[in-house]
């Protein structure tokens, strides 16, 4: 449910780090709570995001939620496949359901994120 190689933000986003690029998506818990995702509103390539601030929105039939950036930086790629297949977020939240890739401006921000174990523990609090 919560891959150990990822880092987790308290607003239920995950981060996969590859060099100075962070791939960001939402967790299994988040997609499960939302229900079937019908719309994902993401920023564009070149936009910048700031840690702990919103970068987009995700909607299910019943609700709208904001997406929070776990780290700051410049967006280098957006998963445009989600425009026509938003259900991928439910089906494969850690794989094909990723949302944005960010070139990190301050990798020390990663220190504020949670491990899989800490994140999972936070869910049952």
């Amino acid at each position: 449910m919560y891959p150990s190689e990822l880092m987790y933000h308290k607003e239920h986003e995950w981060v996969r780090v590859d060099g100075d690029v962070a791939t960001i998506g939402i967790t299994h818990f988040a997609q499960d709570q939302l229900g079937e995702v019908v719309y994902v509103d993401l920023p564009s390539d070149g936009d910048s995001v700031t840690a702990d601030e919103t970068f987009g929105e995700i909607e299910s039939v019943k609700s709208v939620s904001e997406l929070y950036a776990p780290v700051s930086g410049e967006i280098v790629e957006v998963n445009s496949a989600l425009d026509d297949a938003s259900e991928t977020v439910n089906e494969d939240p850690y794989g094909e359901g990723w949302m944005i890739k960010v070139k990190m401006s301050d990798s020390s921000e990663l220190d504020a994120l949670m491990s899989a174990g800490d994140y999972e523990a936070s869910l049952s609090e």
Partner: peptide
């Protein structure tokens, strides 16, 4: 990202 949801339900 889900402010009104806490824990398992």
């Amino acid at each position: 990202m889900i402010p009104d949801v806490k824990g398992n339900g």
